[in-house]
Design a binder for these strands. Structure first.
Lengths: 110, 110
DNA sequence: TCGTTATTTAGCATAATTGCGAAATACTAG
DNA sequence: CTAGTATTTCGCAATTATGCTAAATAACGA
C-alpha cells in the first residue's frame, strides 16, 4: 500500500528534498547564511532584513541570470527562501523557521 | 569563492539528498522502518537483523526488478541502507546510525 | 514618456534520471 | 554438474533537470 500515513508524511518532504539535491541551490542557501559577509553592500535593500538581490547571487554563482532565477524560484516555491520585491529588485533571504522545521521533520520522519 | 569551508560541508550532504529526492526511495526507507509488519515472513534472512530481500521490496514498490535494484543500490551507495548478501538473496535494511547522522548534519549545516 | 536596468519567461540543446525487457551473473539445491 | 531462482548489468526510450541566449516584463529615474 503506497498511501499509508507515514508514506504521505514522507512525501511532504519531497519538494524540499528535490530542491536541496543540487549543488547550486545548496550554495545559495550557504551564501545566504552570511549575507553581509558574502556580498557587496546593497543600496536599496537590507541584506539581513530583505535579503540579497538576484543579481548578486547570479554573480556569486557564476551562471546566467535566467538560470539563477530558476534556481531561486525553486527554493522559494518549496518554502526554504523568501522573496521580497522592492524598487525593481528581488531580494532573497533564508526562511530560517521553515528550514529548521524541515530539518526537524526530516529527523523525525526519515 | 565556491570552495569555502561551509560549502564543502554542504556538498557532503549532496549524495544522500539526491538519493532522498525520489518518492520511490523515500518509500523504500519508509517500508523498512517496520520490516516485520510490512513484508511477508522470510525464511532465509531475519527481517530485522538482515533486512528485506530485494524481491519483496520490488513487489511492494510495484516496479521492475531491474529498476528496484538500481534504487536500492543508490541508497546503499550513499550510506543510508546496508546490504547483506546471504544464500543467494540480498537483504536490505536501514542504517539507522547513518540516517540519524545525516539528519543531524543537515540540521546543523543547512 | 522614454530609456535603462533587473528579473522572468520562452525556446532550445544537452545531461541526468528513471523506467522497461533481455541478457548476464551469482548462488542454491539437488 | 545441472537446473532453477534471485539479482544485477546492459541497452534503449521517455521524462526531467539544467544550462544558455533572446525576448518579454517590471520598475525606476530623468
Amino acid at each position: 500500500m503506497l498511501n499509508n500515513e507515514s508514506q504521505t508524511q514522507n512525501l511532504r518532504l519531497l519538494p524540499a528534498l528535490k530542491s536541496l539535491a543540487s549543488p547550486v541551490r545548496l550554495a545559495v542557501l550557504d551564501y545566504l547564511k552570511n549575507p553581509v559577509g558574502n556580498f557587496p553592500p546593497q543600496v536599496d535593500g537590507d541584506p539581513v532584513i530583505d535579503g540579497i538581490c538576484a543579481d548578486f547571487l547570479r554573480d556569486k554563482l557564476g551562471i546566467a541570470a535566467a538560470t539563477a532565477s530558476r534556481h531561486l524560484t525553486l527554493l522559494v516555491d518549496c518554502g526554504l527562501l523568501i522573496a521580497t520585491r522592492k524598487k525593481g529588485w528581488t531580494f532573497y533571504r533564508r526562511d530560517e523557521d521553515a528550514i529548521a522545521q524541515f530539518a526537524d521533520l526530516l529527523k523525525t520522519t526519515l
